[in-house]
Amino acid sequence: MKLHRARTLDRILDAVGNTPLVRLARLKELQRAPDVKVYAKLEFANPGGSVKDRAARQMILDALADGRLTRDKILVDSTSGNTGVAYAMIGAALGLKVELVMPRNVTEPRKRVARAFGAKLTFSDPMEGSDGAIKQVREMVDKSPEQYFYPDQYSNPSNPRAHYLGTAKEILDDLGRELTHFVAGLGTSGTMMGSTRRLKEAGFPIRCVAVEPDQPLHGLEGLKHMASSLVPAIYDPHVPDEIMPVGTDEGWDMSDRLAREEGLHVGHSSGANVWAAVQLAKQCIARGEPATIVAIVCDRGDRYFAPMKWERSYVW
């Protein structure tokens, strides 16, 4: 039985999760293969606009419940953008102070959305990427630990727990034993770790495939090339059944195609996830095996629009 989202909600936090699965059927690779289905799980339907609402909500609620987060503390974390938006939204809804450290070259829409919710932003050196933001927030917290609550999305077990309790459960409720494959990208790795652990308890085989950029210098914003990055504490490379490398061009091209061919305007990491799902679908079609594949669509494409002319210069 599927529990539908109630029509009236007491608070915006309750609108997080229960995102729809939408079948992709117009991509040419998937036509004339009725037994191989690819579904996109539309995480941009979360109120903060991305999959990160789930982890942020769980980290905050778990910390409020056990007293790590109290009203006199400032929530501070490093983020490449979407987690920051989620913290800022939930912070506003619960009356919590939020400070975010992000690389200065985070896209302008995400900075503005986070600020609109009242969060204070600090910028780190763009040359150091998201690892530079991690180091900067650790220094701030080390200086005055009593002032801050530092969820540390890369190390916090509540991050994968959100997907264990939510994302994977929803997929199992919606598709049941039909589900054969699950695809998600690696950033903090929370989506992959938590969802896979739940899916492995389903009692039937589900192949869980992690998507990773194919080289250290890439344009798949939000995804981490683990071998060249600070590896998140929550990441266990043995959890996924397979790690599929994806090129920037493949991810970007699939994002463009999803907009034009399926009416889904999504970010580049979502394009990479769907590209990987289509590769799996092609393998199943070639073997004549029926399959039902779910790919996580992390956010909407408008978070990545290029800066306007008047935003063109950055101050280092």
Binding site: S80, G129, Q153, G185, T188, G219, E221, L223, K224
Partner: peptide
């Protein structure tokens, strides 16, 4: 001259 890449995960 600065070479600035896209931003990795989180």
């Amino acid at each position: 001259i600065s070479i600035v890449p896209a931003i990795a995960g989180g």
